[in-house]
Write a protein that binds this DNA or RNA. Structure first.
Length: 850
RNA sequence: GGGGAUGUGGCGGAAUGGUAGACGCUACGGACUUAAAAUCCGUUGACCGAUAAGGUCGUGCGAGUUCGAGUCUCGCCAUCCCUACCA
């Protein structure tokens, strides 16, 4: 054992040995309880970033602790390897996407290993490998067969930079692509969809069972699914047809003074009267030219135009005008709404704008209604015929029932969730395994012919249609059913499709005959602990839940939620310099250009603001894990990531705190070194009290660390307990006693999941044979925690005024007596009357006086 | 507009309704050293007091419950995140 701690020497050595001895292979002993620990797998962008390190270290500690607690732990890793960056690299630099991807994977794999993560590498999966995407295609075919995959012509989000369509989930609030940041355009295209809406109710319902998910993730999914209970009501037209609207407020139906259609509504052309033809045409054109966000921004005035036609209000028999307006969405509900200006804020604004009548049909129960706004709450029905006087909440069901009896409508549940658009007009993705035949239509590629492999030779320009469509030889195939010349589907799948089932594949990663063996998948799944960023709260996590449910129905999975527990770890932030006088990307000044002592803009000399922001390339505030490991070692990096903040909070990267962790590990090393080299040095005393105190510190550490980990992964406090134990050992005056030896060994065992390399090295230096990682998780001796003397606080009227040392076994009565006789009592009770004494055994005595 | 989260020293953060600030970082003082680094020891919420004894205040603000509130209840304020014309 070297005197100095050199992580660069010992870490690679142990990493090599763990690989050779296959330490982290998944045990198969069915007697052992299973535990599946999983981090969200990475996109192989080329280099690990600090967020990965934090994410994977959290899961790694959990896996290691569970192993030592006797679980057979599945802790795998893989690569979310399809995607646009590979294709863009090909366009920019002429590297084949596959070559680029596999080179990145090789580099990142070795970086992961350098962090000391305990993965079972035999289960590594790569989504762009034919052995994997063969089964992605198989799953698609299962969906197709079940009627859950279909093609339709639809207005879709088109990303003009990435030149592909996107799913709704992949467009943010500003109408921008989640990847490229470009404002998406609307295009009418024929695309593949997965019928996630068929599972809307189940996806919503089962959220309630996910009690170990963060509340906010569940809320976000609930909102995204967006269930609304309401009614469909039908308004007959003069011409004999009818407009059906969806409303959540059937109780306001008597207040309807007009109807509004979305510009895309199919009845628009028929309902436009010749007098209105020009106005409508102009309006439609104006609407078309607006981007989604311009059209839907709330502060924009609501624009509309009358069609010239009218509809018959079934309840009142009045004729009401039909308008077209941009505030009605074509793809939600029925694409038509009833206008109730008195009781809907949007309708009110619209009615004000165009002078449409306002008819009040609900009165507030308690206070006068405000005249210049819509009253949108519940109240008492007025002006509503036979429903007058009813409570509006209760009236909803009555009105629906009445409408239904009259044939005017029915109750309806409406979801905000739309079907998942999975077509992508790009090359580097999983080919959709269907063939379009002029006679048979859409024909699935026979399962035996899977995978439909991506052709190697392809011209990638980033422009025009799907790159695969250019490859005649690949596209033109005979129809599998009738043999007629037919064409392959040339779109590839959304990469979220690849990542929606990878956690299932890990249970049986090398299976060449099936996506997974049912017994294996049902044994290992669901994932016991999933760890990842909250940015996937909707996207990946919703898609995965959907696919699990589908495969439950079509492939017999024995579970219907994939992730039992979810931990969303915070971001890693770096010191960031901002020039407040600049805007846009220019504002961020990369930290390597800045003198930390006197931060100034290197171009203008202006002083800069320093703040913490999520590490990113564009801000130039990142710290490379590779460099951090080279400088401090993997154990220090791991300790820092775990100590500086609780897992779910953001973590501010700070060199001085990293150095603090390095300092701690150095102290542990020195303790270990001194312990090993104590040899024949003189005994330093054997005070029984000191030994008892040390033993208490040791067993307290076991207790606290175990609880910190088990009660919510509080690694920061667990590490602070390790520090306390280390401090106690360092201060110990009885270093030659067996108790001290017990303390040293336990320090190393407790440290092992967090900093495995130094722990292994010390364990070996202590002359212990087997790996420290193979040691069972220690248990504490409750007797060791017992104190003889304890400090009890004396309070007067709830304020702490003093304390006293008392025997731990003192009874309530004894405590009261002791407190009343204490100096504190004498001092504070003088001239006062004692009203009451509260005794909390082991804690305090509160004297209530007046 | 809707929803969620958070608010504690100079900083990151601890605290089953029971001594607020564990543990660490920073800063300051000291030891060691020719010197520095490293290491070790000490101090580090504010205020009054003499650097003492001792005391007062203090967990965003205001009420309340309680013997006792950072913690529970109600009402505000601030910040952050998500979401948003979904009828």
């Amino acid at each position: 054992m070297q005197e100095k701690y050199h992580p660069q020497d010992i870490e690679p050595k142990w990493q090599q040995r763990w690989l050779e001895t296959q330490r982290d292979r998944t045990p198969t002993d069915p007697q052992m309880p299973k535990f599946y620990a999983l981090s969200m797998f990475p996109y192989p962008s080329g280099d690990l970033h600090m967020g990965h390190v934090r994410n994977y270290t959290i899961t790694d500690v959990i896996a290691r602790v569970k192993r030592s607690q006797g679980y057979r732990v599945l802790h795998p890793i893989g690569w979310d390897a399809f995607g646009l960056p590979a294709e863009n690299a090909a366009i920019d630099r002429g590297v084949h996407p596959a070559k680029w991807t596999y080179e990145n994977i090789a580099r990142m794999r070795s970086q992961l290993q350098r962090v000391g993560l305990s993965y079972d590498w035999e289960r590594e999966v790569t989504t762009c490998a034919p052995e994997y995407y063969r089964w992605t295609q198989w799953i698609f075919l299962q969906l197709l067969q079940a009627g859950l995959a279909y093609q339709k012509e639809a207005t879709v989000n088109w990303d003009p930079i990435d030149q592909t369509v996107l799913a709704n989930e992949q467009v943010d609030a500003d109408g921008r692509s989640w990847r490229s940041g470009a404002i998406v355009e609307k295009r009418n295209l024929r695309q593949w969809f997965l019928k996630i809406t068929a599972y809307a109710e189940a996806l919503l319902q089962d959220l309630e069972g996910l009690t170990h998910w963060p509340e906010r993730v569940r809320t976000m999914q609930t909102n995204w699914i967006g269930k609304s209970m309401g009614a469909e009501l039908t308004f007959p037209l003069e011409q004999g047809d009818a407009i059906t609207v969806f409303t959540t407020r059937p109780d306001t139906v008597y207040g309807v003074t007009y109807l509004v259609l979305a510009p895309e509504h199919p009845l628009v052309p028929r309902l436009t009267t010749p007098e209105q033809a020009i106005a409508v045409a102009e309006f439609l054109e104006a609407t078309q030219s607006l981007s989604e966000q311009e059209r839907t921004a709330e502060d924009k005035p609501k624009r509309g135009v009358p069609t010239g036609s009218t509809a018959l209000h079934p309840f009142t028999q009045e004729l009401i005008p039909i308008w077209i307006a941009d505030y009605v969405l074509g793809d939600y509900g029925t694409g038509a709404v009833m206008g109730v200006p008195a009781h809907d804020a949007r309708d009110y604004t619209f009615a004000q704008e165009y002078g449409l009548p306002v008819r009040v049909v609900i009165q507030p129960g308690d206070r006068p209604r405000t005249e210049n706004a819509a009253f949108t709450e519940a109240g008492t029905m007025v002006g509503s015929g036979m429903f007058d006087g009813m409570d509006s909440q209760a009236a909803k069901a009555k009105i629906i029932a009445y409408a239904e009896a009259q044939g005017w409508g029915k109750a309806r549940v409406q979801f905000r969730l739309r079907d998942w658009l999975i077509s992508r007009q790009r090359y580097w993705g999983c080919p959709i395994p269907v063939i379009h035949c002029p006679h048979c239509g859409v024909v699935p590629v026979p399962e035996a012919e899977l995978p439909v492999e991506l052709p190697q030779e392809v011209a990638l320009t980033g422009r025009g249609a799907s790159p695969l469509a250019q490859l005649q030889e690949w596209v033109e195939v005979p129809c599998p059913q009738c043999g007629t010349p037919a064409r392959r589907e040339t779109d590839t799948m959304d990469t979220f499709m690849d990542s929606s089932w990878y956690y299932l594949r890990f249970s049986d990663a090398q299976n060449a005959h099936a996506a997974f063996d049912l017994a294996q998948v049902n044994d290992w799944l669901p994932v016991d602990q999933y760890v990842g960023g909250v940015e996937h709260a909707i996207l990946h996590l919703l898609y995965s839940r959907f696919l699990t449910k589908v495969l439950g129905d079509v492939a017999g999975l024995g579970f219907d939620e994939p992730f039992t527990r979810l931990l969303t770890q915070g971001m890693v932030q770096g010191l960031t310099y901002v020039n407040p006088h600049k805007s846009g990307k220019e504002r961020w000044i990369p930290s390597f250009l800045v003198d930390a002592q006197d931060p100034r803009d290197p171009q203008t000399g202006e002083p800069l603001q320093a703040l913490y922001a999520t590490m990113s390339k564009s801000k130039g505030n990142g710290v490379s894990p590779v460099e951090a490991i080279a400088r401090y070692g993997a154990d220090t990096l791991r300790m820092f990531c775990l100590f500086k903040a609780p897992p779910e909070k953001d973590l501010e990267w700070e060199d001085s705190d990293v150095e603090g962790q390095a300092r701690f590990l150095n102290r542990v090393w020195r303790l270990g070194y001194d312990y090993v080299h104590r040899g024949a040095s003189e005994p330093d005393g054997d005070d029984p009290t000191a030994t008892k105190n040390l033993r208490r510190a040791i067993h307290r550490a076991i207790k606290e660390i175990t609880e910190d980990i088990e009660q919510g992964f509080q690694f920061n406090t667990a590490i602070s307990e390790l520090m306390k134990l280390s401090n106690a050992l360092q201060d110990a005056k009885n270093k030659h006693t067996p108790t001290y030896g017990e303390g040293m060994e336990l320090l190393v065992r407790l440290l092992a999941p967090f900093a495995p390399h130094i722990s292994e090295e010390l364990w070996a230096a202590f002359g212990r044979g087997d790996s420290v990682l193979a040691q069972p998780w220690p248990t504490f001796d409750p007797d060791a925690l017992v104190l003889d003397q304890i400090t009890v606080v004396v309070q007067v009227n709830g304020k702490t005024r003093g304390s006293m040392e008392v025997p731990a076994i003192a009874t309530t009565t004894e405590l009261e007596t002791l407190a009343l006789n204490s100096e504190t009592a004498t001092k504070y009770l003088a001239g006062k009357t004692l009203r009451k004494v509260i005794v909390v055994p082991g804690r305090l005595v509160n004297l209530v006086v007046s």
